[in-house]
């Protein structure tokens, strides 16, 4: 569980991240163009949890990857704190501003849970002497004890792997958490705990959490729900 809280940035009243007519087309290995996202527009604020719903292949993962700065839109613009991602050092942006959580956890399986978090800490500049202690503390915040953390990632359960992945995403204390189907590979109970953990990152720590999911039960826990269908992003509900 998250035990440490941070306040939302009081100086930032505007959206943390905005999509402005974002479209993304890629080519298949055969060369055929595929338009994964079509003119998506939306704004996402700190302290709130967003669900982006859609069927498999609807463009959810692509949209989250674009928001993570893994690539740039082929049309439109994504702005983080008002600055276009195209103008940012996107590697540094991912290191400092974004935490990514994946459906398949994407831990480095040859490393222990602790080492996965240490690696992320190393990338975001933790001092060498502090890395293990800070990683252990971070894992503790998401409910992973040191014994579990010392096991190879391959030997961790799905829920434990996802908690380690969330701890890794928090290494830089980023204001934006992007979670792509974080409960997709988990049983219902574990999934519920992970969603609770993610929502607490927004509600208690003031981060902006965006969850791509096709599960209504996950969406029900979010403040706002957006639907993406055939690459088009539309608001569905607005939470409390």
């Amino acid at each position: 569980m998250v035990t440490e809280t941070t306040s939302p940035n009081p100086t930032s009243n505007g959206p943390l991240i905005e999509l402005d007519g974002v479209a993304y087309t890629y080519r298949t290995p055969g060369g055929a163009p595929v338009q994964a996202v079509r003119r998506a527009t939306g704004a996402f604020h700190r302290g709130r949890v967003y669900a982006i719903m859609g069927r498999s292949g609807s463009g959810k993962s692509t949209l989250l990857s674009l928001m993570a700065g893994l690539d740039l839109p082929t049309e439109g613009e994504i702005r983080f704190e008002g600055v276009s991602l195209a103008r940012l050092d996107r590697d540094a942006y991912r290191r400092r501003k974004v935490g990514l959580v994946f459906q398949t956890f994407n831990l480095l399986l040859q490393l222990t849970g602790l080492e996965n978090v240490v690696l992320a800490g190393e990338l975001c500049g933790w001092p060498a002497r502090e890395r293990r202690a800070r990683a252990t503390a971070l894992l503790g915040r998401v409910g992973i004890d040191p014994t579990t953390a010392s096991r190879r990632s391959l030997r961790l359960s799905g829920g434990e792997q996802q908690r380690v992945a969330i701890a890794r995403a928090l290494a830089a204390e980023p204001p934006l958490i992007l979670a792509d189907e974080p409960t997709g590979n988990l049983d219902q109970e574990t999934g519920r705990a992970i969603v609770e953990l993610l929502t607490s990152l927004a509600r208690r720590e003031g981060r902006c959490v965006i969850i791509a999911t096709h599960a209504p039960s996950v969406a029900a826990e979010c403040d706002e729900v957006w639907n993406i269908s055939d690459g088009r992003l539309l608001p569905v509900t607005e939470g409390p």
Binding site: D91, Y93, R94, R95, L100, N106, L108, C124
Partner: peptide, 13 residues
């Protein structure tokens, strides 16, 4: 490739 993708996602250039 997956490892490279993960490292890049974590912000490694």
């Amino acid at each position: 490739k997956l490892e490279i993708g993960i490292l890049r996602a974590l912000g490694a250039g």
